[in-house]
């Protein structure tokens, strides 16, 4: 049976969080899970708080929105305080060590990883969303790695496929390295 999971990917508008959420949602859906995805953004095309939530379950939930997070990604400082009502001690937060200067505070696990810096090193800062996805999946092992890679393959334009797969790989590597520490 699929475990109930609540995941939030948050950051600044234009960072590609809705795309990461869609890829993750599709990966879970291909496992046969019921996935409810919701989002919130500001009326600007770039910047401002942006977030996408996934509620994973075996069946369609009565209430499809996040109430108590299991995983929280914060990719920009502007999103650091935006989840205060649904963060809790049992969750894990993954934050960008460069763009998040004051991470959300609590008794929960916090991993600060250089997601944006890694994306820049790969050659495109805009790919930080996929680095983050790889890191989150690597840390949590919430989804089968091959399945996630397969979903990325199907979901991104061929022109950018190699870049995306490299970013996903880099994210997994960051997670592994942080595990060793």
């Amino acid at each position: 049976m699929t475990k109930h999971l609540e995941i939030r990917l948050s950051g600044s508008g234009g960072q590609g969080l809705l795309l990461s959420a869609r890829i993750l949602a599709q990966a879970f859906a291909s496992e046969g899970a019921s996935v409810s995805q919701s989002q919130s953004y500001e009326p600007t095309s770039r910047g401002g708080l942006s977030r996408a939530d996934l509620v994973i379950d075996g069946v369609r939930p009565d209430f499809p929105l996040a109430e108590k997070l299991d995983y929280l990604l914060v990719l920009h400082q502007c999103a650091a305080g935006a989840s205060d009502e649904i963060i809790n001690d049992d969750m894990t937060a993954l934050i960008d060590s460069e763009l998040v200067t004051e991470p959300p505070a609590g008794k929960f696990k916090v991993k600060a990883l250089p997601l944006t810096r890694t994306a820049r090193e790969i050659g495109n800062v805009r790919i930080a969303n996929i680095v983050a996805l790889g890191a989150l999946a690597g840390l949590s092992r919430m989804i089968d790695r091959e399945r996630l890679e397969d979903t990325v393959r199907k979901g991104v334009p061929p022109k950018f496929l190699d870049l995306n797969l490299e970013a996903l790989e880099a994210g997994y590597r960051l997670a592994e390295e942080s595990r060793d520490n």
Binding site: V35, S36, L65
Partner: peptide
């Protein structure tokens, strides 16, 4: 808006 943008199966 929530239901309009909500993605479900």
């Amino acid at each position: 808006e929530v239901v309009g943008h909500l993605i479900e199966t």
